[in-house]
Simulated scan of single mutants.
Amino acid sequence: MGERRFGRFNLLGLWTLILREVLRFSNVWLQTLLAPVATAALFMVVFSLALAARSGGQADTEFIHFLAPGILMMTVIQNAFANTSSSLLVSKIQGNIVDTLMPPLSPVELTVGYAVGGIARGLFVALGVAVAIFPVIGLGIAHPLWALGFVLGGSAFMALVGILAAIVADKFDHMSAITNFVVTPLSFLSGTFYSISVLPGWMQAISHANPFFYMIDGIRYGVIGVSDTAPAFGLGVLVVVDLALGFWAWSWFRSGYRLKP
């Protein structure tokens, strides 16, 4: 039987790649869902106890609600990035990347397949954090569609960054350097634990140049209805950056940059 195609797209091949990427994380859900949810819960507990200790035993509920969406998005960021970067890098190190490059999958299909796997893991983790933590702290979701849009946009951003990082990296040390010196600092300096309105003007300008800020600020609007910038603008920035990263990943798959011997 021939390949199932829609125009020039190999739908069966694309679906197979997506299914492989989804099964990679869903088969080890204790590691990919329970562990991130537990980490997010620990963040919330530590901040709650620290704030309660400073205020004489009374936790600052307003700040906890402000913090929770940022913690959720940080968890999404880490897991979407980990899904694509680990999948591609392990294939390169083990030498079986050829099993992905040889089938009749176009560069577009490879980019979309890997990215959708990362997006699915981001959604998977976001749902887990929201279900497990938000009811406990008495937090609802003010604008569900905006929240979903920013989770999708943020997951796509980090899934594509993970693809690019894995293509550049030759070993796990390289990936650790990218995570520790690029991804983690940008995520921590994006307004996760504070509003950028408290920063000096020049630091606010730097924050607005950080794509991670729009993810954090946008999910905060979706969950509690408060943001430092217009959510439509933030989502627009994410869409533009996602398209640019998608084109970048496509061009590297197309040329075989650091993938083909």
Rank of each mutant, 00 (worst) to 15 (best):
residue 167 I to N: 03
residue 212 F to S: 04
residue 103 P to G: 02
residue 151 V to Q: 04
residue 35 A to D: 08
residue 108 V to F: 02
residue 39 T to H: 08
residue 150 F to K: 07
residue 246 G to C: 03
residue 137 I to Q: 08
residue 64 I to H: 03
residue 170 D to F: 14
residue 193 F to Y: 14
residue 224 I to T: 14
residue 47 F to P: 02
residue 208 H to W: 15
residue 7 G to M: 07
residue 82 A to L: 10
residue 115 A to C: 07
residue 116 V to H: 03
residue 16 T to E: 15
residue 80 A to M: 04
residue 188 F to C: 07
residue 97 I to M: 11
residue 68 A to M: 14
residue 248 W to C: 00
residue 133 I to Y: 08
residue 137 I to F: 11
residue 189 L to F: 14
residue 157 F to Q: 01
residue 261 P to S: 12
residue 225 G to I: 13
residue 153 G to S: 00
residue 137 I to E: 10
residue 162 G to I: 06
residue 60 D to P: 00
residue 213 F to K: 03
residue 114 Y to M: 00
residue 181 F to M: 11
residue 177 A to V: 15
residue 204 Q to E: 14
residue 53 A to L: 10
residue 81 F to H: 08
residue 169 A to T: 04
residue 164 L to H: 09
residue 173 D to E: 13
residue 48 S to Q: 08
residue 12 L to W: 13
residue 34 L to K: 15
residue 138 G to A: 08
residue 130 A to T: 15
residue 232 A to C: 00
residue 62 E to I: 01
residue 77 I to N: 03
residue 2 G to K: 15
residue 187 S to Q: 14
residue 113 G to W: 00
residue 66 F to N: 09
residue 84 T to Q: 02
residue 201 G to S: 10
residue 209 A to H: 13
residue 200 P to E: 06
residue 86 S to Q: 07
residue 29 W to F: 15
residue 230 A to Y: 10
residue 7 G to E: 10
residue 258 R to W: 01
residue 114 Y to L: 02
residue 188 F to S: 10
residue 230 A to H: 08
residue 67 L to W: 02
residue 187 S to T: 13
residue 157 F to K: 00
residue 124 F to A: 05
residue 137 I to D: 07
residue 245 L to H: 02
residue 156 A to M: 02
residue 63 F to V: 07
residue 188 F to E: 10
residue 261 P to A: 13
residue 42 L to I: 09
residue 21 E to T: 09
residue 140 G to F: 15
residue 221 Y to V: 04
residue 156 A to H: 00
residue 160 L to R: 04
residue 238 L to G: 06
residue 235 L to A: 04
residue 222 G to V: 02
residue 40 A to H: 05
residue 256 G to W: 01
residue 1 M to W: 12
residue 229 T to M: 13
residue 39 T to E: 05
residue 233 F to E: 08
residue 79 N to R: 07
residue 233 F to N: 04
residue 214 Y to F: 13
residue 10 N to T: 03
residue 145 L to E: 01
residue 98 V to C: 13
residue 76 V to K: 00
residue 224 I to W: 08
residue 199 L to Y: 12
residue 182 V to S: 05
residue 162 G to A: 05
residue 52 A to P: 01
residue 7 G to A: 09
residue 189 L to D: 01
residue 46 V to R: 03
residue 145 L to S: 10
residue 221 Y to F: 13
residue 79 N to L: 12
residue 211 P to K: 07
residue 103 P to E: 00
residue 42 L to R: 05
residue 7 G to S: 03
residue 260 K to V: 12
residue 223 V to A: 05
residue 14 L to F: 09
residue 137 I to T: 06
residue 258 R to C: 01
residue 226 V to N: 14
residue 127 L to Y: 04
residue 144 P to F: 01
residue 122 G to H: 00
